[in-house]
C-alpha cells in the first residue's frame, strides 16, 4: 500500500545500524513493511531499496523467494490448511474443501470483507496433530469441520485478538540491544575485536571474573 511510515523509517534505521552492511537488513525490513501493511507492496519494496542502497529489483529478487512475504494484499487472517500426507490421511483435503465452502473463496483467494485469505500449504510440521491449520502461523490442531467453523466465527467475532494478531505482526516485544552488548558490527573483512571480547579480556587482565 505504501512506503514505510515515519516511525518505521526510524526503526528501519536502527535495524540497519545493527549490520555491517546496510543490505544485510533487507529481510528484517521486508518483515517491517509487511507488519505495517499486512503485505509487502511495491512501494514498500522500492522504499526499502532506497534505505539499504540497492535496486528495487534486488529487493524483489529476495522477497519473492520467501512464501511468507505476501506480494499481494491478503486478509487480516491468513488461514493455512495443511494438505500434506499426514493431514491428508486424516481429512486435510476435506477440511480444505469445507473451508472453501465456509469462506466462499477458492484456495489462494481472499474473502470480500478482507478478513480471510485461504491457502493450502505443504507440511507445517504438526503431523501428530493432523489435520492442522495455521492462522497467521498460529497453530490449531485436529480440526474437524465444526471446529473449523467455530474457529472462523471466533476470529470474526474478535475473540482471538490476543492470541492471533493481524497478518504480518512480528512480535509483541521488540528486542533492543545496548551498544555494548552488540556483537561486532563491522564488515567481515574488518577483523576488529567485538566489544564483548574486549570487555572479557579487560576483565581477565584485571584478574576479576565478572564476565
Amino acid at each position: 500500500m505504501a512506503r514505510l511510515n515515519a516511525d518505521n523509517v526510524a526503526l528501519a534505521e536502527r535495524i540497519i545500524a545493527r549490520y555491517p552492511k546496510p543490505r544485510s537488513a533487507l529481510i528484517p525490513l521486508c518483515h517491517l513493511a509487511q507488519e505495517q501493511d499486512g503485505w509487502l507492496s511495491e512501494e514498500a519494496m522500492a522504499h526499502i531499496a532506497e534505505l539499504i542502497d540497492c535496486t528495487p529489483a534486488q529487493v524483489l529478487g529476495t522477497a519473492s523467494f520467501y512464501e511468507m512475504f505476501k506480494l499481494h494484499p491478503v486478509g487480516r487472517y491468513c488461514v493455512n490448511v495443511c494438505t500434506n500426507i499426514s493431514c491428508q490421511l486424516l481429512g486435510g483435503e476435506e477440511l480444505l474443501e469445507h473451508a472453501e465452502e465456509t469462506l466462499g473463496v477458492r484456495s489462494g483467494g481472499t474473502t470480500e470483507d478482507g478478513m480471510f485469505t485461504l491457502e493450502d500449504v505443504e507440511c507445517v510440521a504438526a503431523c501428530t496433530e493432523a489435520p492442522a491449520v495455521q492462522v497467521n502461523y498460529r497453530y490449531f490442531h485436529r480440526l474437524d469441520t465444526e471446529a473449523f467453523d467455530e474457529l472462523i466465527s471466533a476470529l470474526r467475532a474478535g475473540e482471538l485478538e490476543d492470541s492471533v494478531p493481524p497478518h504480518g505482526t512480528l512480535a509483541k516485544v521488540r528486542q533492543e540491544l545496548d551498544g555494548d552488548r552488540v556483537a561486532n558490527i563491522t564488515a567481515p573483512q574488518d577483523q576488529s575485536k567485538p566489544v564483548w571480547i574486549e570487555r572479557a579480556e579487560a576483565a581477565a587482565r584485571s584478574g576479576g571474573d565478572d564476565s
Partner: peptide, 22 residues
C-alpha cells in the same frame, strides 16, 4: 553497476525479470 534485472520468484519458477514498471 545497474542491477535492475534479478532472479525473481526463486525456486521452481525462477525467472529473470525487472521490478514492475522499472
Amino acid at each position: 553497476g545497474d542491477p535492475l534485472i534479478h532472479f525473481i520468484n526463486r525456486g521452481s519458477s525462477t525467472e529473470v525479470n525487472t521490478f514492475p514498471d522499472q
